[in-house]
Amino acid sequence: MVKKIILVVLVLGLIGVGTGMYFFYKKPETVDDKKGIVVAAAALSAAYSTSEKAADSIYLNNVIEVTGKVGETEQNQDGGTMVILETGDPMAGVQCAMREKGVQVAKGQEVTIKGFCSGNGITGVSLTDCILKK
């Protein structure tokens, strides 16, 4: 009986430690294996300028796959790249912060980028943790 109790306590303890370690070392979730909402850059931008609330209810914090033409790129202070997709409105591009450093895209290139939508702002709709699909 005592042996059994010790065994149960031991197993429970191991499960506890395992769970703790899993959460402690867990990596942030990525967009790679997730299915994204497919949308064109101009349509995404238009949805946000029509109604931010309605657009947030569809896109915010969700994975989206946005297609558009590269308008420009910006380098951040830590060497990361922000790819800005054209939408027809120069003050409202779709800005995609790329997860990996050294992403190469050319101005005018048609690309599809997958990332988490972090909402709309003064300079356009933001996507974070992005990867280049094509």
Binding site: F23, E29, A97, I122, S126
Partner: peptide
């Protein structure tokens, strides 16, 4: 690293907008 900032150099007015979801931590939890 994804903060938008606009500054008017003439009036000194500025706006910073921070997408909260874009803060990166060392640990996912």
């Amino acid at each position: 690293n994804e903060v938008s900032n606009i500054l008017d150099g003439k009036t000194g007015e500025m706006v910073f907008q921070v997408p909260v979801k874009s803060f990166k931590f060392e640990r996912a939890l």
